[in-house]
Design a protein around this nucleic acid. Sequence first.
DNA 1: CGATAATTTGATTTTTCTCAAGACGCGTGG
DNA 2: CCACGCGTCTTGAGAAAAATCAAATTATCG
Lengths: 225, 225
Amino acid sequence: MTAHAVARHEFDTGAAVRVGGDSLTLGPVELMGARIRYERDAEIYGEGEPAEFAYKVISGAVRTYKLLNDGRRQIGGFHLAGDLFGLEAGVEHRLSAEAIGEATVLVIRRSALLGLAAQDADAARALWTLTAADLERAQNHLLLLGRKSACERVASFLLDLAARQPAAATVDLPMSRQDMADYLGLTIETVSRTLTQLQNEGVIALPSCRKVVFCNRQALSRLNA
Amino acid sequence: MTAHAVARHEFDTGAAVRVGGDSLTLGPVELMGARIRYERDAEIYGEGEPAEFAYKVISGAVRTYKLLNDGRRQIGGFHLAGDLFGLEAGVEHRLSAEAIGEATVLVIRRSALLGLAAQDADAARALWTLTAADLERAQNHLLLLGRKSACERVASFLLDLAARQPAAATVDLPMSRQDMADYLGLTIETVSRTLTQLQNEGVIALPSCRKVVFCNRQALSRLNA
DNA sequence: CGATAATTTGATTTTTCTCAAGACGCGTGG
DNA sequence: CCACGCGTCTTGAGAAAAATCAAATTATCG
């Protein structure tokens, strides 16, 4: 597939729209979006709001989540540089989104995507495929929350994060223990204790609380079940 | 929307394809599928198998699930009469599917749907929307598994099931306690105890272990959080 | 350097799981 | 029609996992 096809049909707008660079001519102009910078914990959109835009992380990280009426939170996913989020088939956002630390995102008008999909079958297929990828992630997450132990959840999480980060030496945790807990269906104390336990077992090292080094990836994979 | 539009664009093949009847002329012929009957616990497809078909439940119920290597099971969803399942954007099934009790399903060739989507933007949009609906269900399920108590999980489950069943008087449980447990991320004992507890509190009645009567729907809704 | 927030650790409680036994339901065959 | 056997469901007691409450330690930021 050509670079142009990628830009048009997989909405890899990061490649198409090297905003700040000089390649604005690549990709259809409708896909251009403004770059927006959000500060730590800033809301990007709320659950139930009209889904006027989809987003792509340029730098930083974003969490999407749902709340129960008493404030309990379930984080659906963490979105790192290059990840798309907030794309909806329906008219409203089904989760809320917030910046974790400072984050820059590219904003893409949903109507532009819909218009493109109405014209171009490959584009429509690409939108479907993006949503299907979200679904697959959610289904794996269900297995984690429904059937894995705390230790297995943490191990799965670390491996997943590592697989998504280019730099392989040490994994960076852009999110707090609370965020991890709310993603893993645990408490911060359990997350912390589990990390400590993995460290004591020599499976990982924690040079700082936001950095993880894999000392025994095989042991982690076994825990991944 | 006309009946024809429904058939073409929402893949409501049950309406279009009254197989065994005489209305075979309704709807595009590609959407026709064979009716297949599965017996109790029969596998319809397995995780990782090529997704040659999508399915629609005609009668009975179907469970879709994932397994961990040691046999732990997470049920992703229960599919009742009228529900579509097994539709994939990618080339393989991401969960396994089995009949719960005896079930009849309509089989729809995936290539027919893809072909239609390639021709017809509305059809393509409908496929996307179906996958998005699955995603929404999965996201609500994540909140349930990650953050709700056993009692809240059971209450949510019963309300969800009731909302999907036409007959409002008593809710029918087509699945075993084990199936419920594997959907709710609990054990059969906890499910059973929770149902008993709700009965003792006067919130539900259990005329038989597969039937539930709501005695206090408001109390259930409160538990739904 | 100090204040504040985040993380870790400890003690205890709660929830849910596990193991075990008994009850119930259902189909089969006498 | 009833007895039996088998699978499912319920109930109980105890154990385990994770949550909660609390305090101490460490990191972060001005």
